[in-house]
Amino acid sequence: MRRALVAITGLAASTTALVVLKAAPGTSQVAQELPAGQAPAAPVPDEPSPDSSAAPTSRAPAATRSPRPERRASSSPTPRPTATGATRTSPTPRTSTAAPRPTVRTVTGPVVSNEFGNVQVQITVSGSRIVDAVAVELPEKTAQSARRSEDVNSRYSGTSGMVVARQGADLDTVSGATATSGSYRQSLQAAIDRARG
């Protein structure tokens, strides 16, 4: 048992001697980096006497070098300086919460004539949706035709009229104003075709 202990101590001593020799000036610094507080084991003679139980008193000087401080990983990368000295950071993407506004345009249909006069319709389109309709011209030759034209206009035109509600020229005929209703639908359909074309 004592021989095994002496052999282990001898191996530790020879390793320490190697480390100390390599730590001499002009040699590699790898061997100098021992953990702080760990002293090398003392060298042991090649053939110890059987009655020596104490460890030898001579020790090689321990290489003292403070361990390197650990690098802490930073949570964000450090910006690298550019050639001009300004720091470069990655651009932050711009996010837009508002949707792009649709194009609003006004389209006028052709003049459609009937026995009572001319009818022409103009629509306002936002994107592909009709948002308003206006009768630019309606028959007004007589009081009766003016009254019927007013009925057609109030039923079809405006932002809350039948044209906006149905989003097309499929409109109900206004009672007593069949010719004006038909002319209105024709001019309206042509305006819708122009807006979509």
Rank of each mutant, 00 (worst) to 15 (best):
M1G: 10
M1F: 06
A4W: 07
A7C: 09
A7T: 08
I8H: 06
T9G: 13
L11Q: 10
A13S: 12
S14Q: 12
L21R: 08
K22M: 14
P25Q: 04
P25S: 05
P25D: 08
T27L: 14
V30A: 14
L34V: 13
A36M: 10
G37M: 06
A39Q: 10
P40H: 06
A41V: 01
P43R: 03
E47C: 01
E47P: 00
P50Q: 07
P50T: 07
A55Y: 05
T57H: 10
A60V: 15
A62D: 11
P77F: 03
T78C: 10
T87W: 12
R88P: 00
S90R: 14
S96N: 14
A98N: 10
P100M: 05
T103M: 08
T106Y: 01
V107Y: 02
T108V: 06
P110H: 07
S113E: 14
S113G: 07
E115Q: 09
V119H: 02
Q120C: 08
V121Y: 01
I123A: 03
T124R: 09
S128F: 00
R129F: 00
I130N: 04
V131D: 00
D132N: 15
T142W: 02
Q144D: 09
Q144W: 09
E150R: 14
D151G: 11
V152T: 03
S154R: 13
R155D: 12
Y156H: 02
S160H: 13
G161I: 02
A165Q: 15
D170R: 12
G176N: 11
Q189A: 11
D193S: 14
D193H: 05
A195T: 09
G197L: 05
